[in-house]
Write a protein that binds this DNA or RNA. Structure first.
Lengths: 161, 161
DNA sequence: ACAAATCTTTACTTTTTAATCAAGATTGGG
DNA sequence: CCCAATCTTGATTAAAAAGTAAAGATTTGT
C-alpha cells in the first residue's frame, strides 16, 4: 500500500501551480525543472490533469498552465483518483480478479479489508485541499495527527466493547 | 494508492491457514489451488511469510504450513509491511528521491501528506487481526466504518475551528 | 503569412514488479 | 538406505508501470 510515482509527481506539479500569483502561469519546462523530472514526463502528467479539469492550458508563446479552480477547492482525493493507474481507471476494470475470487469463495473476509482501507484513505485525502499544502497555512500534519488520534480512540471503543 | 498483488495474495494465504483446526496444515499445492494462484507463486509468498515468522513450515511427506502464532495475535499492519515490495524494505531505501527533493525545496508541503497517509493506513491496519477475517467474528467492516465516522468528525472539528 | 514557442497525442523504451521455472535440501515411510 | 513428498532458493521470463521520443496542433508576435 503505497503512493505511486505518478500520484506523487502529479500532485507536486499541482502544488507548483498553486503557489503562483494572479495572472502567472508555468510552462512545461518550468514545471519539469522545479520538480526535477523530464519535460516529457511533466507533459504526460499535465496532460492527465488537464483532461480531468484540474488545470487549464494555453498554447503558443506566452502559454502555460494555471489551476482551473482555486487551490482551496481542489481536494486531494479527486486528484489522486485521476493520477492512479491511468488506463485501468478509464476502462473501469479495477480489481475484477479480486471480486471474482471473492464471489467464488462466497465471502472471503478480505474484500471488506481492501474496500474499507481504500475508503479510509479516500476519506483522509478528502479532508485536505491543495491550498493546505502551500505557503503558511500548512496544517496538514496537524490534520492527519488528529485523524490518527481519533482512529486510536475508535479502536479502543470497538475492541473494548 | 492501492494494495499490491503481493500484499493481497500473501494476506489471503494467511487467511487460509487461519481457517484450519488444530493439527491441520496446508501444503503449497493446496494453498495455491484454494487461492487460484500457481504453486510457484504461492511458494514465493509463503517463503516470505515464513522468513518473517508468520508461518512455520515442515518439509517432507505430511509437511505443510501452519500459522506460527494464533490468528488473533497477527495484526495486518505487520503482515502488509513484510509483503510490500520485498527487497526495497530490506534495504531500507524507501522513498529517498522524495525526501531529497523535499530537503532541496526546504519543506515542500507534500511530505507530510505522504507520511501522514501511510500512518493512517498503518493505524487502521493495526486494528485488524487475522482472526477478524475468518469465520463468524467478522467485524472488519464495522471497525472500518467506525474509523471512517470518526475521521469525518475529526475533519469537521479541524476545518470548523 | 511565417516562425517561434508552447501544448497534445501516440508510439516506443526502460525499469520495476510479478510470476514461473528448475535445481537443491529436508523429512518421513517402507 | 532409498524414494517420494514437500519446502527452499536463486535464476529466468512475463507483465505492468514509468518514463522518453517524436511528430502534430495551436497561438502569439512580427
Amino acid at each position: 500500500m503505497k503512493i505511486s510515482a505518478q500520484e506523487e509527481y502529479g500532485l507536486r506539479c499541482l502544488v507548483q501551480l498553486a503557489t503562483l500569483h494572479d495572472n502567472e502561469s508555468l510552462t512545461l519546462s518550468q514545471i519539469a525543472e522545479r520538480e526535477g523530472i523530464s519535460v516529457a514526463n511533466a507533459g504526460k502528467l499535465m496532460w492527465l490533469l488537464n483532461k480531468a479539469g484540474f488545470v487549464s492550458a494555453t498554447r503558443g508563446t506566452k502559454g502555460g498552465y494555471t489551476l482551473a479552480r482555486t487551490a482551496s477547492e481542489v481536494y486531494l482525493n479527486e486528484v489522486i483518483k485521476i493520477l492512479e493507474a491511468d488506463e485501468i481507471n478509464n476502462h473501469c476494470e479495477g480489481y475484477k480478479g479480486v471480486l471474482e475470487m471473492c464471489i467464488h469463495n462466497g465471502d472471503c473476509g478480505i474484500r471488506p479489508v481492501i474496500v474499507g482501507l481504500h475508503q479510509i484513505v479516500n476519506e483522509a485525502l478528502s479532508n485536505i485541499t491543495l491550498a493546505q499544502l502551500v505557503g503558511e497555512e500548512r496544517k496538514v500534519t496537524e490534520t492527519f495527527q488528529q485523524i490518527q488520534r481519533l482512529e486510536k480512540r475508535a479502536a479502543k471503543q470497538i475492541l473494548g466493547s
